[in-house]
Simulated scan of single mutants.
Amino acid sequence: MTNKKLQDIKYSVLDLAAVKEGGNAAESFQNSADLAQHVEQWGYTRYWMAEHHNMPAIASSATAVAISHVAHHTSTIKVGSGGIMLPNHAPLIIAEQFGTLETLFPGRIDLGLGRAPGTDQTTAYALRRHLDSNAENFPAMVDELRGYFNPELTTGIRRVRAFPGEGLDIPIWLLGSSGFSAQLAGRLGLPFSFASHFSPNNTLGALDLYRRNFEPSDTLDEPYAMVGVNVIAADTDEEAERLATSLYQQFLNIIRNTNKLLQPPVDNMDDIWMEHEKHALQQQLGASVIGGPEKVKKHLQSFLDDTQADEMIIASQIYDHEARLRSYEIVSEIVK
């Protein structure tokens, strides 16, 4: 296999619509629109938003609405979900929502699907009521959803149809942090996005499963793999390391279940985390790329060498909006 260079692949943005300490959701959405406008100019391919619930630090719970907001404020960049947690929803509702988005923004909408709840079990019950649609039903739910867009994929007569939705060509991606969705995406011939930004140890195994199980389809002739990566870039290594402490604190809050908003950077994480927590974060955030331009370039190329990805989708949990913009700008300069 010929090794790819950074200039050979595409780059995209994963926005968790972080609500920061001292801010609010309205500011978060303003920042999302502003970031999307900038990365559109810098040549990024797509801008994805994620579904999470019962998390005060993440504003994109109504993901389709947030996607519409970003699409309204941009003109060419693809906008989509990274992802919609399909077991939380009736597939018909997602078909109608994304059919509406595609109708409003033709050719610009992606539908990335995950099978995790994106929340705790109590909140999952509040979302699904009877919890009938669990992760084990995910393949059937994907089939049902695809059938609403393309009735030829279904057998028999479908009495329920999606309007808007039916007949629209909306790219469907499967997302995963393990091997389940990798195999399913390969079998269906769909593009696959792996969450290496929080599950780095499973990355290469899942990508191998996807590629080995891939069957050509009307969607793809060959596998197309995108990998998520945390990137905190700044003009110096030292400044990037400091900015990254907001990301560390966010994951620490998840471990501790403290539900804090995105925290400002600190000078010394040793004042905050315990040794076992530091080890846990290093396991979960091990693939993060943090540093000045030269260090980021070197580490991104190494990550690409390992994964041979077709695209990287970059998450940058940075407290200061201007510093976050600068991080994405640095990456765009590196990969030109």
Rank of each mutant, 00 (worst) to 15 (best):
Asn134Asp: 10
Thr154Met: 01
Glu166Tyr: 11
Ser199Lys: 15
Ala126Met: 08
Asp218Thr: 01
Ser217Ala: 02
Leu220Asp: 00
Gly176Tyr: 09
Val160Pro: 06
Phe198Pro: 14
Leu209Ser: 09
Pro200Glu: 04
Gly167Gln: 08
Asn230Phe: 07
Arg212Lys: 07
Glu238Met: 06
Gly186Asp: 03
Ser177Asp: 15
Ala225Tyr: 02
Ile170Leu: 10
Gly176Cys: 08
Ser181Cys: 12
Phe138Thr: 00
Ala135Asp: 03
Ala195Val: 03
Thr155Trp: 10
Asn134Phe: 13
Ala185Trp: 02
Asp235Pro: 05
Ala195His: 14
Asn134Pro: 10
Thr154Pro: 00
Glu222Leu: 04
Arg146His: 01
Ala126Gly: 10
Phe149Trp: 14
Ala233Ser: 06
Arg129Ser: 04
Gly179Pro: 07
Arg187Tyr: 14
Leu127Cys: 02
Ile157Leu: 12
Ala140Leu: 09
Met226Ala: 02
Tyr210Ile: 02
Leu220Cys: 02
Ala206Glu: 09
Pro216Arg: 08
Arg242Asp: 05
Leu190Gln: 06
Thr203Arg: 11
Ser193Met: 15
Asn213Gln: 12
Glu152Tyr: 00
Phe149Thr: 03
Phe192Gly: 00
Thr155Leu: 11
Thr219Phe: 00
Gly165Ala: 15
Val160Arg: 15
Pro151Arg: 10
Glu239Asn: 07
Arg129Glu: 15
Gln183Leu: 03
Arg159Glu: 11
Ala240Glu: 13
Leu131Cys: 04
Ala244Trp: 11
Glu136Ala: 15
Pro151Asn: 08
Pro216Gln: 03
Asp143Glu: 10
Ser178His: 04
Leu184Cys: 03
Phe194Ser: 08
Ala234His: 08
Ala182Ile: 10
Pro139His: 14
Asp235Gln: 10
Thr236Met: 15
Ile232Cys: 13
Val142Gln: 01
Trp173Gln: 01
Glu239Gln: 09
Arg161Asp: 05
Leu174Gly: 04
Trp173Ser: 00
